[in-house]
Design a binder for these strands. Structure first.
Lengths: 138, 138
DNA sequence: TTCTAGTTGCAAATCATTTGCATTTAGTAT
DNA sequence: ATACTAAATGCAAATGATTTGCAACTAGAA
């Protein structure tokens, strides 16, 4: 299980102690195909307190290991903060797909040129919603 | 107060009865400069029950009169669903500014061309976050 | 004017997320 | 290795947004 060493290094580099809950959560996050809610992640941990999970996600987010994703749902989704991407979500069945192309630098330049109170854009949220091919056929 | 007739027409066209709370809420929404939380809107109503407010916002949303805006905060923001636009939010002070330019049709075409499970995009969420000029000067 | 489905308000429930605090532990200094 | 301290954990309880149940109340059609 070399993976564990990687996780320990990630935590160390982030200035976080390597604890059992953190390693477990990092492993789970690294295996996720899609962003997931705290409650869903919690079910996968078996033994990590939900409070610890929330605190862990918060510290991971602070250290930029994790980011929150908003999918127009009641609760927040989390995923590892690697390679910039966005999501297309099926509003029927919830299926998701990632996409990388967003070309936001170009767009934000144009927007900032017109904006009266902002020159300095740091982040953007972009998510698409539609009907996946499977649902469309029904 | 010709405005009230307009509001009644809006509600009628949407298939909603014209009630005192609804007219009051519609008026408040029409006067908002920025999206606002249910709790904030509630404070402005004086007399409308918070539950009624939530139900009204839900029915307005269902009839496309209102849309939810997610601003990376704990609660949901609402605004009238007129003229398509997005927001730039200052992560320091919360100041907001609208922008119209988003050119999403062009982008979604490109994205869909690459996507494996989606041909049909219906909506998009796009919000920018940065530091407003006033905060940047400090 | 009557009638009824749709609407409201209140109380109480729910659900996600957070806080307080006493106990435990990782990782450094001895 | 051992001792130490700040950081991390778990439990219970709190918080805050939003929802639900239900009885009383209208808007607006007949």
């Amino acid at each position: 299980m070399e993976q564990e060493k990687d996780f320990k290094k990630i935590l160390k580099d982030a200035g976080l102690k390597s604890t059992i809950p953190r390693l477990a959560i990092l492993k789970i996050l690294s295996e996720l195909k899609n962003p997931m809610t705290a409650q869903e992640i919690h079910k996968k941990t078996k033994g990590v307190d939900l409070v610890t999970l929330y605190r862990t996600l918060a510290s991971f987010e602070e250290k930029q290991l994790v980011k929150k994703v908003n999918l127009q749902k009641d609760s927040v989704y989390y995923e590892l903060n690697i390679d910039h991407h966005h999501h297309i979500v099926c509003t029927d069945c919830g299926t998701m797909e990632d996409f990388e192309l967003c070309d936001m630098d170009r767009l934000t330049k144009k927007i900032v040129a017109k904006a009266s109170n902002f020159k300095n854009i740091k982040e953007h949220v972009l998510e698409l919603f539609g009907i996946c091919n499977a649902c469309a056929k029904i």
